[in-house]
Nucleic acid binder design. Structure first.
Lengths: 334, 334
DNA sequence: CTGAAAGCGCTAACAG
DNA sequence: CTGTTAGCGCTTTCAG
């Protein structure tokens, strides 16, 4: 069915080696035979088999990418950036999200090895690593494929790229304090936004403001953040805690909080100020436009790609780096 | 570096054929030798090279997916569904978005051939196909790889899956009419939402309502829909057209329209009703929650996958189908 | 049940 | 400049 280099060689009356030469444009080939071959290629609609080439060259020009999910502003935007940057460098992307399923995560990791990817970009892993997972990671490390992790899915000895969650959180609190807020609540998650919680605590501490543990609501759930935010806001209000501002661990939580507040009869930002984290596109698309911490997604993506390629080039001594990108407070309506 | 079947064979004192047998679990192997081999595999952290297998088996178990972009609710959600469904069936996904660039589109199409994917899922292509593009498509068709297209990126002879854009649009207009609206404007795009415009026109026609061409604003632009919506709403108001409802070609446009209206001093839905199309997640995340037409993304994804696999199985006679999925009017606040 | 050997499509020396 | 040939890692007859 598929045409091979052999078919082309026969058609053009040359050897397969010569065909290979013109395909790759490396060695010199007489102009005349070159044209003959090009014509044959055209005629047969021939396109070389990359996998076959791979067998001898040991480079698949494929990168494996495992985000936790795709159907979410942050990860899809990041995927787009990564995919584009990688494409420009001549790499194709094998994308599979693990959806927080441990079995799937393991299979994906093995998939990347099976498929011989040249490099791997890993999103955060599920927290509860069991033995099988540890083994899978070991297996991966053994192959010694360059890896870069995102968002603190820290695997020992692997380079990571992340934003300054703690610093960003501190700047939020600092800003709220300077805006005159005395009681600032925090609604976040134990998993991804833990460092944001730390930043919240640190900022209060630095400003000598006592931390009211009752105005901190956390979840270890990882699914529907908006619903969590909604419930948490209710909880906060019903527990009679005083607060004039709520710092939310991410934008989706903030949306839920805003909706709950509205239902309760509190207006944003008149009665309560809300600040999120991430600046996903929905935050500025609708009103009130959310005040939030912007993650420099483009930069994160490019950095990941750069670091990975760099690591792939240097081949051996991969120094384990931890790269932290700055965030930016985007003050909008809430 | 990488361990091969040979290493395992040596370690276990058997031939590579036998190793291959236990890897694939097809032929019978004596329990004893099987265990020997399994141990060797474990010890060496061996994982078979899928590409090598591919060479002989002619099946890569890889599917190529080319959405126009990833950083957008609709496509990222769809990607997630497709990726998951395919994963369950044992396929990996090669994802590359073309970002409406014609050169990139061509390269991606060729990439899919080079990489020997078993099947292809295509999102809408750019409208302005030049000769090179036509050639690329021809080349693709020649390889006779099963293909399914999404959202009317119709290539002659290729099965497509789409939602009932026209029907959905008609139901919107019908609903607005029944709600008492007399003047309904339309703001949409020439590309993807053309059929929605047709639906809009048809519905008015059926109800014997004259169409005011001045209250139809279209763009052939494909980038920032929200900004387009914003500008279009201004244009509409400034042109002094009368309208009490605006049907927008997609949700992003609707967001822009709502923002503009707010700026102008018109309230939604009191002064003007707004209806979108797509029901991307941002539509229900923020208030006012948009009234819109829901695209059954999960179903679209599953259908595409099913149809593609079915086509891959039946191998030869691929009957060209056009599958149209129903939409659903979701009445919310606007 | 197991081994030897051919070959998948292509690249990369090595000779001419 | 061009042809011959030896693999790449694996599966699959074909013999034992």
């Amino acid at each position: 069915m598929r045409k091979t280099i052999k078919d082309v060689a026969r058609e053009a009356n040359v050897s397969i080696a010569t065909v290979s030469r013109v395909i790759n444009g490396k060695d010199k080939v007489k102009e005349e035979t070159k044209i003959k071959i090009m014509n044959a290629i055209e005629k047969l609609n021939f396109i070389p088999d990359y996998n076959a080439r791979t067998m001898v060259q040991k480079k698949t020009k494929m990168i494996g990418f495992m985000p936790p999910e795709l159907a979410n502003g942050y990860w899809s935007e990041l995927s787009d950036v990564i995919q584009n940057d990688l494409w420009k460098k001549g790499y194709a992307l094998l994308v599979t999200s693990h959806n927080m399923e441990i079995e799937k995560t393991i299979s994906i990791l093995d998939l990347f090895i099976e498929r011989n990817v040249d490099g791997i970009i890993l999103g955060p892993l599920t927290k509860n690593k069991n033995d099988k997972m540890t083994n899978a990671i070991d297996r991966l490390l053994h192959q010694n494929i360059p890896i870069v992790t995102l968002q603190g899915s820290s695997i020992r000895g692997v380079t990571s790229v992340d934003v300054d969650n703690q610093g960003g959180a501190m700047s939020v609190v600092q800003y709220l304090l300077e805006s005159g807020h005395k009681q600032i609540a925090f609604i976040g998650t134990v998993n991804s936004s833990r460092e944001r919680e730390f930043g919240y605590r640190n900022a209060l501490m630095i400003n000598h403001i006592p931390i009211n543990e009752k105005s901190i609501i956390l979840t270890d759930y990882n699914g529907d953040f908006t619903t969590f935010g909604y419930k948490a806001a209710y909880e906060l209000v019903e527990s009679k805690q005083k607060f004039s501002a709520i710092f939310c661990g991410n934008d989706l939580i903030a949306f839920g909080v805003i909706r709950a507040l509205k239902k309760i009869g509190l207006t944003v930002p008149e009665d309560v100020s809300i600040v999120g984290f991430d600046d996903i596109s929905a935050s500025s698309l609708r009103s009130p436009m959310l005040t939030t911490i912007r993650q420099p997604i483009k930069e994160i993506g490019s950095t990941v790609v750069d670091v990975l390629l760099e690591q792939m080039e240097s081949e051996k001594k991969t120094i384990t780096k931890k790269i932290v990108l700055p965030t930016e407070l985007v003050i909008r309506e809430t």
